[in-house]
Amino acid sequence: MENAGYFFAAFALIWALLFGYVLILINRQKQLRHALDSLKARLEESEKGKETKRGARQADGAAI
């Protein structure tokens, strides 16, 4: 087992780096999906709010 230490160090580093990179990508994806969902919810709320305002304005116009 000549140079076994270097051999295992090289393999450990390859897997550690690749695994670390994949973990970073997965975490980032989770964070972004969460951010995207909350933004979509905000967008929906804001569109609903707009519709409600428009409806109220139309009702006011009809009353006048």
Partner: peptide
């Protein structure tokens, strides 16, 4: 596999940017 995963991440980022812009235009 890594390239596909990275591309899909970037697509989500782009979508987030677009929705944020829409929200800022609407004053939300």
């Amino acid at each position: 596999q890594l390239l596909t995963q990275r591309i899909s991440l970037r697509q989500i980022e782009t979508e987030i940017d677009q929705i944020s812009q829409n929200l800022s235009y609407q004053g939300g």
